[in-house]
């Protein structure tokens, strides 16, 4: 059942926190694995709409490892070339302001997004469907469950060159079709974004607690890798449609020692990643 934890603006939040990885002798948490998968989607020099929760940590990891020149943007108007000096819980926490590259207003950063300067954005959602469309507004089932809403998610999904979603992998959260399309993915498939007038973009990955989904030219999701200790059958039976598979479906790479060190130096008490 959808509860408050499914309603994050970005990131997977509390749901991922208590989940242990499938491996019995795990030396990292599932959240840490997801953070590292997200970090690897940041290329050096990318302009990234960072968001909060796990993607925030992914930005820190990417900056400290393979993408030192990545730049982070936040909807409140903050642009940063360095990670905030200490762990933050919202994008407007004082440490995220101190030492910022620029600190102005929302229209300025949204203008950069609309004009095509932003490479990547991270999003969370209550539901993600077969074509990477996201719902964070309301779930219509037996009764309506009201979620907090788009925030900037719809804007990022509409206007960034690509976006990455983090999601708790449950069958009801991966329906064939979202009950409300807050943030557009590939709509109903190839050509949809162009048809409705979106200038670019679309999902490049959905990182769940079981798998990493990517998207074919037809706009449909396929399993690209499965996390260590997770059976492919588990992924398939917990997805709300007949999930396509990549040519091969390898194991999602485990976090490196350098990546784990970067995570733990930042989220010292494991608020987001334990």
């Amino acid at each position: 059942m959808m509860t408050e934890t499914t309603t994050d603006r970005v990131g997977t939040g509390a749901l991922a926190r208590s989940v242990e990885p499938g491996s019995t002798n795990a030396t990292y948490t599932l959240s840490e694995l997801m953070v590292c998968a997200a970090a690897r989607d940041i290329k050096d020099g990318d302009l990234v709409f960072v968001g909060m929760r796990l993607p925030l940590i992914a930005f820190v990891v990417a900056k400290k490892t393979h993408a030192p020149s990545a730049i982070g943007l936040f909807e409140n108007g903050v642009i940063r070339s360095t990670a905030a000096p200490e762990l933050i819980y919202t994008m407007a926490d004082p440490p995220n302001i101190l030492g910022a590259t620029q600190c102005l207003d929302m229209l300025s950063v949204m203008g950069l997004l609309q004009s095509g300067r932003v490479d990547l954005g991270f999003l969370g959602a209550a539901e993600v469907d077969r074509f990477g469309n996201l719902n964070s507004t309301q779930v219509n089932g037996a009764g309506t469950i009201r979620l907090p809403g788009s925030g900037g998610a719809c804007d990022i999904a509409s206007l960034a060159h690509r976006f990455v979603v983090l999601l708790d992998h449950k069958k009801e959260r991966l329906p064939e079709r979202v009950s409300f399309m807050t943030s557009p993915g590939f709509g109903d498939g190839q050509g949809w974004r162009k048809k409705v007038g979106l200038p670019r973009g679309g999902p490049s990955a959905v990182i769940t607690t079981k798998t990493v989904l990517r998207f074919g030219d037809d706009g449909e999701a396929y399993a690209d890798s499965v996390h260590p200790g997770i059976e492919l059958e588990d992924v398939l039976s917990n997805t709300g449609w007949k999930l396509q598979l990549g040519k091969t479906v390898p194991q999602t790479p485990e976090p490196s020692p350098e990546e784990l060190q970067a995570i733990r130096e930042y989220d010292k008490e494991g608020f987001w990643t334990s």
Partner: peptide, 25 residues
């Protein structure tokens, strides 16, 4: 930092409060 706001949920789900859904932009 925590997720849902419960009075908002109750007002929309039970009392049908009107919400105009916007995006930040």
């Amino acid at each position: 930092m925590m997720g849902s706001a419960y009075n908002f949920r109750r007002a929309v789900e039970q009392d049908g409060m009107k919400v105009f859904n916007m995006t930040n932009f």
